[in-house]
């Protein structure tokens, strides 16, 4: 690792925003629950990138610690959500998230 790390923090934040917006677009557009989960992963990574950039900007370890908590939350979320995917596929025989709107009728 060099000692002159000259990446402007604005650019990193811009990348984080772009990733978050791409993930949001995916959540809003897709109907397949697996793709919605992938989009949520992308959004979580965007927030993790923002934390890391902030931690690097001030030279504090807190950013990386928050990244680790995001990792733990993502792992728990994926475990539960994939359980729900399996239940959805078993009960409705589809991955369409609209199939699970039975509470409407």
């Amino acid at each position: 690792m060099g000692n002159a790390m000259t990446i402007p923090v604005d650019l990193v934040m811009l990348l984080a925003i772009a990733l978050f917006v791409i993930g949001l677009f995916g959540v809003l557009t897709r109907r397949n629950i697996i793709f919605i989960l992938i989009s949520i992963e992308v959004m979580m990574n965007a927030s993790a990138l923002a934390f890391i950039a902030a931690g690097a900007r001030w030279g504090q370890p807190d950013g990386q610690i928050m990244f680790m908590f995001i990792l733990a939350i993502a792992a728990a979320e994926v475990a539960i959500a994939l359980g729900l995917v399996i239940q959805l596929a078993r009960r409705f025989n589809t991955l369409d998230i609209d199939a699970a709107s039975e509470l409407n009728d």
Binding site: M1, N3, M5, T6, I7, P8, V9, D10, V12, M13, L14, I17, A53, G55, A56, R57, W58, G59, Q60, P61, D62, G63, Q64, I65, M68
Partner: peptide, 23 residues
């Protein structure tokens, strides 16, 4: 982000040891 423009660059490396002691 660009409302308050800053030309700050990302700073020094944070080693795993620092992260561990803080964690």
């Amino acid at each position: 982000i660009y409302d308050s423009p800053s030309s700050d660059t990302t700073g020094t490396m944070v080693s795993p040891k620092e992260v561990g002691t803080e964690l």
